[in-house]
């Protein structure tokens, strides 16, 4: 990675690039910390049973938000509202489908047990 500033690049663009680059680095560091925390929870048996699953789910949710924010550049800016609404609506549909599937199949399973 060269750090030289091209002669024809205005200073404002150079600052913009620095900011975008930092954003990726921050995202990487946060993702590494969250991933390591998740694996450490299981490797070191820090938590067990339901508490472990809840903590892992929470870590995954935070990491997904970190990826969306720092790698996919989704934020609360007005110009991004359409995309954010699209994503949130999809998440709603996903939750309905996933929880519905798990619920119904679990119910079927219980009824099928001898």
């Amino acid at each position: 990675m060269s750090n030289r500033i091209p002669a024809d690049m205005p200073p404002s663009e150079y600052e913009d690039e620095g900011r975008e680059r930092r954003s990726y680095v921050v995202g990487l560091v946060l993702a590494l910390v969250l991933t390591t925390a998740a694996f450490a929870t299981v490797w070191l048996d820090l938590l067990s049973g339901g508490a472990a699953l809840a903590a892992l789910g929470l870590l995954a949710l935070i990491q997904a938000v970190v990826h969306l924010r720092y790698f996919l550049h989704i934020d609360l800016q007005r110009s991004h509202r359409d995309d954010l609404l699209l994503i949130l609506f999809t998440v709603l549909i996903l939750l309905i489908m996933v929880s519905g599937t798990i619920w119904i199949l679990y119910d079927q399973h219980v009824r099928m047990m001898p």
């Binding site: 067990s48 892992l56 995954a60």
Partner: peptide, 25 residues
């Protein structure tokens, strides 16, 4: 780029709900 980053987001779900949940529970 969007496709690639999105696949990484899906992988978060896989390593958590498949691998870590599988071993923890």
């Amino acid at each position: 780029a969007l496709f690639w980053h999105m696949l990484d987001v899906v992988w978060i779900g896989i390593f958590t709900f498949v691998y870590l949940f599988g071993v923890a529970s």
